[in-house]
Structures are given as C-alpha cells and as structure tokens.
Design a binder for these strands. Sequence first.
DNA 1: GCACTTCATATAGCGTTGCTATAGGTGCTA
DNA 2: TAGCACCTATAGCAACGCTATATGAAGTGC
Lengths: 242, 242
Amino acid sequence: MSFDGQLPPKVRLLRAAAELLAASGGSAVSTRQITQLAGVTAPTLYHHFGDKEGLFDAVIAAGFEEFVADERDFAPSGQPLEDIRRMWDNHVQFGLDQPELYLVMFGNIRPESRPVIVADAEALMEEMLNKAAVAGQLNVPPKEAARSILAANVGMTLMLITEKAPERNLELSAMTRDAMIFAVSTEQARDSGPEDTGKSSVVVAAIALNAALQVSNSDQLSSSELKLFLEWLHRISTSSTS
Amino acid sequence: MSFDGQLPPKVRLLRAAAELLAASGGSAVSTRQITQLAGVTAPTLYHHFGDKEGLFDAVIAAGFEEFVADERDFAPSGQPLEDIRRMWDNHVQFGLDQPELYLVMFGNIRPESRPVIVADAEALMEEMLNKAAVAGQLNVPPKEAARSILAANVGMTLMLITEKAPERNLELSAMTRDAMIFAVSTEQARDSGPEDTGKSSVVVAAIALNAALQVSNSDQLSSSELKLFLEWLHRISTSSTS
DNA sequence: GCACTTCATATAGCGTTGCTATAGGTGCTA
DNA sequence: TAGCACCTATAGCAACGCTATATGAAGTGC
C-alpha cells in the first residue's frame, strides 16, 4: 500500500505521516517509513518541510483545523459558559479519538517554549470566554481563565489517554470541568444560590469592560491612550481583594 | 569534568545521567554523552540498567524519592485539605525547580500505559485524601478525587513549565488548586456558607466509611465478605444524585 | 596454590536514525 | 531553442541505541 500516483509528493508525504502517526501507538515514526509509504525519497521531504518537525507541524496544523472545526461546529448557545463546557468535552473527545496526534500536539512539552498550537487553542478558548466576560459572568480576566481551564483540560485529557480505554472515567472529566468553570464564574452565573467569592463588583465590572473593549474596537481613545487604559484595567481586574 | 575515580560505575552513570538531564534544556540526552561523562563504556550501562529507559527509570526513582520527601516534609496539619493544598504547591514547585526531570517523569505520555511513577504519585495523594474522607470532608471517593486533582495538578505544572520563567503566574495555580479542592469537598469543609451540592448525606457517609475501612483494617468481616462489601460501598459512593 | 565460576568492563561493530552535498530531470518563459 | 526555476534522486555522513564477543578481576572449592 502506498500513495503513489496521482497526488503531488507534498500531499502524499502529509497523508503518509498522518497515517503512520495514527498507527504508531505512540512510538516514534521514522522519516524513512514516511518517505517509503509516500513513494518518495528523503530529500523531497526536506525540500518541502525543512525537517521532520516541519512535516509534523504541517500534520498538526491539519489536525488543528479539524480540532477547531469540532469546536466551532456547534452554534453558540447564547450561554457562553455552556459553550465552554462543550468545548472542554470536545477537547477531551478529540484527544481520546486521536491520542497519537493529540500527544504530538499537546504532549511534546519543552521548558520555556510554548508550541504555537497551544497558544492557538488558548486563544480559541479565550475568545469564547470573552463573551462570558462581556456578560459579566467572569470572576477572572478571560486570558487567565482560559489558561487555567485549558491547563486542567489538557491534564485531564493526558491522564485519560494513559488509562486503558474501558477504564476511562469521563465523569472525572465532567467534575473537573465544572469545578474549573465554577471557579472562574461570578455568582450570578452560577446555578446555586448567591455566595460571596471575595471579588468586589468593581473587579467584575472592570473585567467586563475590558472584554467588551476587546471585541468592540472602540476608537474613542488613541492607540497609545488605549494601551495604557487597558493596562490599568488589567491591573484592576487581577487585583485580588480576598 | 567527569566522575572518574572513587565511586562505582553504577553510581557514576546515575549522576552523569541526572546532570546531563538537568542541563539538557529538554532536548534528548544520548547514551554516549552519559557514558563519556561517567568515564565508562557502553556495555557497562547496559549491564547495570538493561537499556536507556532502565537508566532513566533509576534516575526517576531517585527523583521521586526527593519528590516524596518534599511532600512528606511538612507534618500533617490535622487539616487534611490544607495538606492537600500544600501538596499541590510542592508538586508545582518541584516541576518548576527541575523541569527536565519533571518532564521525564510526567511528560512522557503513551496511550494506554501509565508510568509507575504517576501511579505512585496518585497513591500518595489518595493516601492523604483518605484522611479527609474519614473526617467526612470528601464529596467524592478518594481515588477519584486524587485522580482528578492530580490530573489538574500535572496539567497546570506542564503549562507553567512551558512559560518563560518571569511570566509564570502562580496565582493561576492557586486558583485551580482551590477550585479542585472545593469541588471534591463537602459543604462542612468549606469556608463559605452551606450550599447544597446535590450529594445526599448517605453518599458522604458511605465515602467516609469506605475510607475508614481502608485505614483501620477491620477484621469483623472475612476477606471475601469485605471485598463484596467494599464493592457495594463504592457503588453507593459513586452514585450521583444530582 | 590452582582450576573454576561469576561478575564487571572493554573492543569493535551492527542496523537505524535524521539529514544533506551534489547532480540530474522537468516544465515554463523568452 | 536557450535559460531558468523548481523539484526529485543517488549516495552517503555523523550520531544514535544497542550487542556479540573477549578480557580482566574477585571470590570459592579442593
């Protein structure tokens, strides 16, 4: 079996890499395997992708498109926090459906260097959290909320991947998910009764204003003024009053 | 610089591996580098440790001893949940202090295979959560609580490692930590006022009894009876009433 | 004191890895 | 037809994890 024939070598390489990666079971995939399956010799790979990591990045980019498509698949429910909930579940499901690809995307950690893909996923979640912040439902700036939730989301997904498929307990994921969302949301967004979370209303209002400015692109202030203003706003948002 | 001289080759190999690992900055460390620094040839490594992974496992085991020592360093405060809080912070600090070692320990994920080290860390946390469960402070069986908290703990630590040191925001870790602990704890253990979490008192009592049996080793029941009894108890504990 | 076993280390090299210096073929534009 | 990019192949390098084999050292039984 190979991809010889009709398709251009670049596409054949991408497909071969994706296929071998999916079948690898987590072990390494060699460039020779890939080029052989693609019906191509080594220099072709390096001409198109620079190096092995470049090829994998390209595969990841395709995988991320799929990932984003999954995340955007559902129409916004009008309840941003409910959307975040589904986003979490989609994330976990993507990891369990394609563990090898997921591990290449989120499992290749190196100190002090964040893969582009992670930043993208974070931006995606932050974007959604911004809507919640505009609605005054967020206790924490969207950026910080996104980072925390995503960290827990990745951690939970990695843990579930290490478990044998029949033993995976998705209720743990649901519990962690709800705990994280609960933690970043204001009382008015919560199902249960009111409760003092230690955040003053000024902080919540500052967060909402900040988020609203991010989406509306107001031109009342000059760019330099706006920059400083946002900086102050962020300082207020992150001041803990507890 | 090398470890030639007095110490036995096995120790020299361990030290050389640990040192190179710490200085690697996350990139791969070759057996040739290790053996050269240890002043030893290749077969010596394979005689003592079987293969490269065996050597790394040995390094990890030493690292884990240090890790456990850190975790046990503080005397139990009598408030198990407070101890969990400190355990979380120790975990994060260990990861940030020794990122390369931490990544070898917790970052080498493979589908459907959990490293021994992770199971050990989980057992350590479960052991501490058992105390909370005995005190009726747990909303969830200790095993499940430990798994969730540890997953979030690892996820958060990995995320912090990818950030550049000056930008690391430990408040995110604290927030996530408290969110997870809050989620698994019963209302009576919480600082803020009472709140219905949807868990009936029978579930909480079952969890407490289960945990108490784990530590006390009661001999009122035969082992076969106990096994069945515990199974039922666990079934009650995990029945969600929300 | 001497053969014998056992453990520990060295010499040398196998097969595979990621990657590349160099050259040749192909198709388009002038 | 000439020239010029673009793309691909031949062949091979250095580094990798690992091992078949041999040699030395240390203990043991007679």
